[in-house]
Design a protein around this nucleic acid. Structure first.
Lengths: 196, 196, 196, 196
DNA sequence: TATGAATGAGGATTCATTCAT
DNA sequence: AATGAATGAATCCTCATTCAT
């Protein structure tokens, strides 16, 4: 795992901003270099091709994403709290970086290329596996309803999380994500917790 | 609402196929004309610009989408059945047109342009309103849990539906969408129905 | 064998001129389009890529070359006269198109690419085979010395022909190719004819 | 005549390798520096420009070439033996450095630039002059046929030599150059020696 | 002596679009 | 209704070269 140089980080950040604010189609080397304030060829000192930049963006997302799920997994405490942590982390993260909301769940963005879409699929299945472990722990401890499979539960947990973020983005950040997101979580918790 | 000419319909269909199978970036006038078997300038006899074609694609999606929700709304019967209908219609639709799965929830595709993204947002809020009505009916009849708001419930209903379709697509249609989708719906139904 | 369109012919001609007068490195799409007086993209209406243009240039050379050897082969008369015809045709051809001299024997020009260099090699071996037939006829009729193999003779015939043309080019056409070429041929004839 | 520094020699050698193996178009500062294992700017410590490197390459060729002809000239013995020496030296040289065959007669390579092509022409005429001296000595001693001019003979000697090397290269070194070259020389010798 | 970072100019190619026919 | 030919603007990327360190 080669760490990014400062410039590389800067390029990735700029790329994310552009994708987020103006869409993938506007992610051109020219726009990228303009955003950073260097010439177009200068980009190529730091990345061999545009594809490598995209791959870098994906790497960035992967790390963010996995870090959330890893932290959740390694937390002490009951399963619902871990899930709450995942929700809250997402909301915090996006509230702080609204632009990311346009990008993070855009599997479609990376769908053009085999290399990219394969990694997106891998990432998705990785986070799902983490989620499975949390859910299974919840089954065992009796904290989560066990009349649903882990696959179903994971979909019911992640689907609404993704959707509220997409809506927040489409509404041009027209509501308070943390607050609404919290309400969503509480509602969801009622559904998935084992009735006492 | 001007109806499409036959050629216009053909162009829209080809555009959808291209977007679905190869991604938005491959939707060029050249590829479009090649797919239809006419020359590039011929496209411009039928649409003034590429944007108009995109607008046409969106219109197509809108109609599909609203038709599902309209039918569901006008159905007789209890709310859960209407929701089940919405789920099933989606699964049927995508099972029959797998390529569309790559597209249909791709709000990001239309995010470049103001005109497009405004309509996407409008569409989303329109279907949401239909859903609200169904949910409210469910509240009133006591078929749906009423300790959740309609906003929360709508997210919890539509989020997993979208997610399973996205996963189906990312898995390259690697599982039986109708079957898995049905299981998902049954699981979800357990959660949102009012306990008897 | 698809015939060239008028524009394609024009492009090939311009390409040859540029290579001849300014070298392969100056054969750019920009220079090509400037020479013809159209825009750069317009070139691509007529050839899919620069490589295809190069292939076209090669085709042109092949046809010129094979036509000379074919005519010589089908001539009536003694072998030395056929060889003389080959010599004279070359000198005529290059005197009329001095620029070609820079190109025609430049196997190196086409050496970059597999597809190109394979065809150059094929062309060379084809003309050599024609020459072999002429030489063998000369052996049989007793017009040519037969104490040399056809391979050796073909080298001794074509080598000096190529060299004088290259020198003529390097001297910036500083001598009369037809006249000097003729003297060269007469000298060569003395050597390869069977002494009476 | 400033001697090359060690680094300069290294650069020239690398340049020749690249031209020989991959063609002139691949001779870029980047490829050059990569081949040597230094950075691109480092090249400019040793040569002011790419043109100077090309000039250096030419110098290298000049020295190789003139050394062969000089040695031949200063040899004792009959003219045909000197010519044989020239042939053999060439075959030896290229057998040992096959890649060079792609380059050595590539006057076209240096044709882009005035400075370069002038020196190529000068080199050619210089070796020709050496050859003239050898031929004249052969005339005087009665070892060479004198019914041909020295110009004609020189062309008939050098033309086939060049051609067999070019063919060897185009055949991807598909035959034994030394052996075939020797046969070629023996054939040629029969032609140009004065009959006893 | 060397390098990391940068750049203006230019490379081939594709884009959406226009126009004469 | 359709096309062949064309184009300005933009695409990604490479070139030889420079500069500060």
């Amino acid at each position: 795992m080669v760490p990014f140089t400062a410039r590389q980080k800067e390029i990735i950040d700029a790329a994310i901003s552009i994708i987020a604010e103006r869409g993938i189609q506007e992610l051109t080397i020219k726009n990228l270099s303009k955003a950073i304030g260097i010439s177009e060829p200068a980009i190529y000192r730091h990345y061999d091709s545009k594809m490598d930049i995209l791959l870098g963006v994906l790497t960035f997302f992967e790390e963010r994403n996995l870090s959330i799920f890893n932290k959740a997994l390694s937390m002490a405490g009951p399963a619902p709290e871990k899930l709450e942590f995942i929700y809250k982390q997402h909301f915090n993260h996006f509230s702080n970086n609204p632009a990311l909301a346009a990008v993070v769940f855009s599997e479609e963005i990376f769908q053009n290329d085999q290399r990219l879409s394969a990694r997106v699929a891998a990432l998705m299945s990785k986070s799902q596996n983490h989620l499975f472990k949390i859910i299974e722990a919840g089954f065992n401890s009796g904290e989560l309803r066990s009349d649903l499979s882990k696959e179903e539960l994971s979909m019911i947990i992640m689907g609404p999380l993704r959707l509220i973020i997409i809506r927040w983005h489409l509404s041009k950040y027209g509501f308070d994500l943390k607050q609404q997101g919290n309400k969503l979580w509480k509602a969801l918790k009622k559904l998935i917790q084992k009735a006492q």
